Amino acid sequence: MARPRSDSPTLFVLEDIRPDFSIERRAIKRGQWPVAGLDEAGRGPLAGPVVAAAVILDPKRIPKGLDDSKRLSAEERENLFAAILKKALAVSFASCSAETIDRTDIRKASLEAMRRAACSLAITPAFAITDGLDVPQGLPCPGEAFVKGDQRSHSIAAASIVAKVMRDRMMGMCASRHARYGFEFHMGYATERHRAAIEAEGACARLHRMTFSPFRIDAEIIVQEEIVLADAD
Results as ranks from 00 to 15, higher is better:
47 A>T: 07
87 K>R: 13
172 G>L: 10
211 T>W: 08
220 E>S: 12
133 L>C: 05
24 E>K: 12
22 S>K: 12
176 S>D: 15
123 I>P: 07
21 F>L: 05
1 M>Q: 07
146 F>W: 14
186 H>N: 08
158 A>L: 05
197 A>G: 08
99 E>Y: 03
18 R>S: 15
162 V>K: 01
5 R>E: 15
161 I>C: 00
104 T>L: 14
105 D>K: 03
85 L>P: 04
50 V>H: 08
140 P>M: 07
50 V>S: 10
73 S>E: 02
112 E>R: 13
122 A>V: 06
184 E>A: 15
55 V>W: 01
217 I>D: 12
61 R>E: 14
65 G>P: 10
100 T>A: 09
17 I>Q: 14
90 A>H: 02
156 I>W: 02
38 L>A: 00
180 R>N: 13
221 I>P: 03
140 P>I: 07
141 C>T: 11
128 A>D: 01
149 G>E: 00
48 G>T: 12
224 Q>C: 10
83 A>T: 03
104 T>Y: 08
190 A>M: 04
223 V>S: 11
227 I>L: 15
136 P>M: 09
115 R>N: 01
218 D>F: 07
137 Q>G: 13
160 S>K: 08
142 P>K: 05
210 M>N: 12
4 P>I: 11
110 S>H: 02
113 A>Y: 04
1 M>A: 12
24 E>I: 09
71 R>Y: 00
63 P>K: 00
225 E>F: 03
106 I>R: 02
